[in-house]
Amino acid sequence: MTPTGLTVDGHAGYAKTGNDIICAAVSVLTQNLVNSVEALTEDKVLCYMENGHMDIKWENLSEQGKLLVDSFFIGICGISNTYGENYVQVCMGADGR
């Protein structure tokens, strides 16, 4: 099944709010994914964001869009591998997300 979106939820809890480098890194990667897909492809993404939560949805990503999503996951997995799953967990849902 092809993924049709992703969800980023919660706070890392690595440091105090405003000083949490893990939250900052995940936020930057997530926002950069949306911005990059919109700026570098013809793909459309829907993004819902509120404090500590972001849902990103898409349909039929181009090869460029898929590459950007893959790059996002390389970055997120790198953070999880470096700092541990206590701070960043990468989960695939039943629908491939």
Results as ranks from 00 to 15, higher is better:
D20G: 06
L40H: 11
E59D: 14
K57L: 14
T7D: 08
F72N: 03
Q64F: 12
G75R: 00
S62T: 12
Y83H: 04
C77L: 14
S27R: 02
Y14L: 03
A12T: 02
F73D: 06
T7S: 11
V8I: 13
G18D: 06
N51M: 01
D9H: 12
V88D: 03
D9R: 14
H53R: 09
I74Y: 08
G78C: 07
F72R: 00
D55T: 07
G52Q: 03
L46G: 11
L40P: 09
V37S: 05
G75C: 00
W58L: 11
D20P: 01
G10M: 05
L40T: 09
C23V: 01
M54P: 05
G65P: 04
G52H: 07
M49L: 13
D70H: 06
Y14I: 02
C77E: 15
N32P: 02
S62R: 01
C23T: 01
Q64I: 14
A15N: 10
L67T: 13
N32C: 13
N81G: 07
K16N: 14
Q64T: 15
V34P: 06
T17E: 15
D70I: 10
F72A: 07
G10P: 02
T82Y: 11
H11P: 09
N19K: 11
I56H: 05
I21P: 00
A39E: 14
G10E: 06
G18H: 10
K66R: 11
N60E: 15
E59A: 12
L46Q: 09
I76L: 06
S71R: 01
T7H: 07
S62K: 02
T30S: 15
N35F: 02
V26Q: 01
V28K: 00
N81S: 13
V28I: 14
L46V: 14
T30I: 03
T7A: 12
E85D: 12
Y83F: 15
G18T: 10
D9M: 09
L33M: 10
M49F: 13
S62W: 07
A12R: 00
C77F: 09
M49I: 11
L33I: 02
A12H: 03
G52L: 03
E63W: 03
E59V: 14
Q89R: 13
D55G: 05
H53G: 02
V88H: 07
W58I: 08
L67F: 12
Q89T: 08
Y14M: 01
E38Q: 12
I76S: 00
S36L: 07
G13I: 10
F72D: 03
G65V: 05
T82G: 04
A24Y: 03
N51R: 10
V45M: 13
V45T: 10
S27P: 04
N32I: 01
G84E: 09
N86D: 15
I79H: 05
C47P: 00
I74F: 08
T17G: 05
G10Y: 08
L68W: 04
I21K: 00
Q31M: 06
K66W: 14
V26D: 04
Y87H: 07
T41E: 09
A25I: 02
L40Q: 13
N19F: 15
A25N: 01
V8K: 06
N81K: 14
F73E: 11
A12L: 04
L68R: 01
